[in-house]
């Protein structure tokens, strides 16, 4: 297959398998819906989360408008928490565009979680049936032209969604064995949900363990209680997988590699040059420009230059360091894509 006729799905999947793809793919396994896309569809952000057709169309809009090489959904971090019994707040009554958060926490015990992981009905709960519908709508429209991506939270981050974060943080230090047990039980839930996402036909799953960044936890605690459940999740993957942790992750980058995902996604706080020095050329790294500075704050030329710098620093694909804030300027989005097509490493 020549690269000229490769679909963007081929390009992204090839990149994640470790092959060099030129020009570098431009995609994101985390939030990338834009206000421009929502406006074109006439959608209010708060209403797209619980409707398959709206979610599918909003998810496809960044690919359709800009040529961003992926369709990623959902847009919030509440999928697993809702399955576990939490209540989500979509901010329907707010003028501001906001990502949903958890309003009522389910506070599941380890025993609850163990039982739910064994219960076959868990894979049919919450918005999972809706997501299945979303995949169908996207494939009907675009076939295999574009990669479909979704994500799960890492156990520590999910723990902070379904219960209070402060005790979890303290217990990670004070009661590591108990916390490890809790995170292991959460990992089993995440695996059940991840498997269901694969069954639906989702190509790429990113595990987002952003709560366990070294801005928050010591590398020592990371090694002791975050690594074992992450490895378990990595081993359960049956398709392309990415691990995303935000913040300055250089102190744990070797462990992130060791966790065993196909690729790592890092944010702009972690210097890419140093990452390459540490992990070598074989590890697939997606990253790592600052989406707010490049796409919302600056001019189109800033976006172009920041993405160009990112490519030069040796990433395998251009991927924003965290969610694209929806109000990203159209001309900056276009400049990002242009830079990816024009700049060679």
């Amino acid at each position: 297959m020549t690269e000229a006729v490769m679909t963007s799905r081929d390009r992204v999947l090839k990149m994640l398998s470790g092959e060099k793809v030129s020009p570098v793919p431009c995609w994101s396994g985390v939030g990338n819906v834009t206000t421009a896309g929502l406006d074109k569809l006439g959608y209010d952000f708060a209403t797209v989360h619980h409707d398959a057709e709206m979610m599918a169309k909003a998810a496809m809009s960044t690919y359709e408008i800009y040529g961003f090489e992926v369709v990623t959904f959902p847009f919030d971090l509440c999928l697993e928490a809702e399955i576990l019994g939490c209540e989500m707040n979509p901010y329907a009554d707010t003028k501001e565009l906001l990502y949903p958060t958890i309003k009522v926490k389910s506070k599941n015990t380890v025993e609850d979680l163990r039982a739910m992981a064994k219960d076959p009905s868990t894979a049919t709960k919450g918005r999972l049936p809706q997501l299945k519908e979303v995949v169908k709508i996207i494939r009907e429209k675009h076939g295999n032209d574009v990669a479909i991506a979704s994500y799960v939270l890492g156990p520590f981050t999910l723990g902070g969604q379904i219960d209070e974060l402060e005790p979890l943080l303290k217990n990670s230090f004070k009661k590591p064995e108990e916390t490890a047990e809790y995170l292991d039980a959460l990992a089993d839930i995440i695996i059940v949900i991840g498997n269901e996402l694969r069954n639906m036909g989702i190509d790429i799953i990113t595990t987002r363990e952003m709560g366990a960044t070294t801005d928050v936890l010591s590398p020592r605690v990371f090694k002791k209680i975050i690594m074992p459940p992450l490895k378990k999740i990595a081993q359960s993957q049956t398709g392309p997988s990415v691990l995303h942790i935000c913040g300055a992750v250089l102190p744990i980058i070797d462990m992130m590699v060791e966790a065993g995902f196909d690729a790592l996604s890092i944010d702009s706080k972690t210097p890419m040059n140093e990452v390459r020095e540490r992990v070598g050329d074989e590890v697939v790294i997606c990253g790592n420009f600052n989406p707010f500075l490049a796409l919302n704050n600056g001019e189109a030329s800033d976006a172009y230059n920041m993405v160009a710098e990112c490519i030069k620093s040796g990433v395998n694909s251009v991927h924003p360091g965290c969610d694209i804030w929806p109000s990203a300027k159209s001309e900056n989005m276009e400049a990002m894509i242009r830079a990816c097509r024009e700049i060679r490493p």
Partner: peptide
């Protein structure tokens, strides 16, 4: 100096 992280700081605050 990254000898302490957030959990340690929270415990000290308590």
């Amino acid at each position: 100096t990254q000898e302490y992280f957030v959990p340690e700081m929270l415990m000290a605050a308590d």
